[in-house]
Design a protein around this nucleic acid. Structure first.
Lengths: 139, 139
DNA sequence: TTAACAATATTTCGTTTTCAACAAATCAAA
DNA sequence: TTTGATTTGTTGAAAACGAAATATTGTTAA
């Protein structure tokens, strides 16, 4: 059997598309001066708040030592703040500060616009199929 | 319309799956002590050699300044070497040294095994459909 | 109760990556 | 030609990353 060319490997296609989508998002976030990681953190918190560090890290696809440093920075920028979890004092909860909420309000449309552009490139049922296949592979 | 939850966004699914696949590959490369970037570079060169820096960077999804440093390291490790392009002296061609070929021979099966595992998780026609959809979105 | 173990977040520290500036070679237009 | 713009790759300083070690709290089992 002929070797599978790198470009035909699913892992490579996924990596390429991921890179393209991240570059696109980064570009659109640039005017706001917001790194993509911070944007994702605000998205996570927007869905439900407060959240412990570990959960944010897992959902935003960031390692916990990195998250600690990003949250440090976002705190000094007044976007979020920490609070100890009263039920489990090992945990540190993160909340969105008013400035963070305002920032996210300005930016929230960016990711949904990207999603929309993608949807427009595929027919509706194809987009659904694609998501379904990706979910099948996730874990 | 209800906001699209982050987890339902295609860009997020792609990022998650990419992370999972890279973690998996990294794990399997660990015994050989080969970083995933170096493995991808060897894959690119295996397909056709020699290749200029810029092309390798584009195909291996690495920024060119980063590639310069990785090739520096791989050169000192005796895996690859540089040669000036006689037709265009701005270009630097990269070739695989014997040690690099031997290393890749040992590792080449790892990515195809990953591809195989993925294929086994999906039915054949689903895998083909998934690739087709990803290609449709790529540029 | 304790003592051992597990979970959570942070710190440390060496490596890697990035951005901007740069150098060299080529190309294109006057 | 020569000049200016473009392409290609490297460099250097700063930032980001991540594995391992640490500190703190919680859980479990003797």
């Amino acid at each position: 059997m002929a070797p599978v060319r790198m470009k035909d490997q699913l892992a490579y296609l996924i990596a390429s598309l991921n890179r393209q989508l991240e570059a696109d998002l980064t570009e659109r976030l640039r005017p706001g001066g917001v790194p993509i990681e911070q944007f994702r953190i605000l998205e996570v918190l927007d869905a439900s708040e407060p959240r412990p560090m570990g959960e944010i890290a897992a959902q935003a696809l960031i390692e916990t030592p990195t998250l600690t440093k990003i949250i440090d920075k976002m705190t000094t920028e007044g976007l979020v703040y920490r609070a100890p979890d009263p039920h489990d004092r090992r945990r540190v909860l993160v909340l969105t500060a008013p400035a963070g909420k305002a920032l996210f309000k300005r930016l929230r449309g960016i990711s949904s616009a990207q999603e929309k552009r993608i949807a427009e490139m595929l027919e509706t049922e194809k987009a659904a199929e694609l998501k379904s296949l990706l979910r099948e592979l996730l874990q």
